[in-house]
């Protein structure tokens, strides 16, 4: 029982690392605007499943790494992920029992909030361009949610993450 948390953290951090790598994976120009927000999706799952293990602080640190990785304003993704994570942490008991399609709709709302925070910071700092494509990652994230959830749930059960 005692050594499971160590294992657990290993799986969680690895999944977040993979999410960060997928965020900068080169994609063809036609698909690139539809790149889902991998880190946000993975964080939503872990906070929903293990709110005592992954929390707002984890999300904030991931966001800070995302900022340095993509060269955006330092703190921008951290802010957006922290606020989104707070909402997930507050309602994880409800989201957990939703059927998959309803979960996907909730995830879309969460990703929308996340994107809105990013747009807000972009707007305040005067970096707002290509506003008409900002919905694309939200939609892609919603469509991918069932697969991400099944994959991460399988991982969690396989490694006994708790």
């Amino acid at each position: 029982m005692r050594d499971q948390p160590a294992q657990a953290r290993w799986v969680i951090w690895l999944s977040l690392l993979v999410a960060l790598a997928l965020t900068i994976w080169p994609l063809p120009d036609t698909v690139a605007p539809f790149r889902p927000e991998w880190s946000a999706l993975v964080l939503i799952y872990w906070i929903m499943a293990l709110p005592h293990r992954v929390n707002v602080g984890t999300a904030w640190i991931t966001g800070l790494l995302l900022d340095v990785l993509t060269g955006s304003l330092l703190g921008q993704h951290a802010l957006a992920l922290a606020i989104m994570s707070l909402v997930v942490a507050g309602s994880h008991l409800r989201i957990r029992v939703f059927p998959v399609w309803q979960q996907a709709m909730t995830v879309m709302a969460l990703l929308g909030l996340y994107e809105l925070m990013l747009i807000l910071v972009d707007g305040v700092t005067g970096n707002l361009y290509d506003l008409e494509w900002r919905w694309a990652p939200v939609l892609a994230g919603m469509l991918l949610w069932p697969w991400i959830m099944f994959l991460l749930r399988a991982l969690r059960r396989q490694f006994g993450v708790s």
């Binding site: 709110p51 005592h52 929390n55 707002v56 602080g57 904030w60 966001g63 304003l73 330092l74 703190g75 921008q76 951290a78 802010l79 922290a82 606020i83 994570s85 707070l86 942490a89 507050g90 994880h92 008991l93 910071v121 700092t125």
Partner: peptide
Amino acid sequence: KLFGHGPSPLIRCVLLVLLSIVIITVDH
């Protein structure tokens, strides 16, 4: 575990949000 989502995440989130805003301002 039952009360893991009490006021503590909210306070932490508020602190982190304030910290983020400071960082964003300084960086910008």
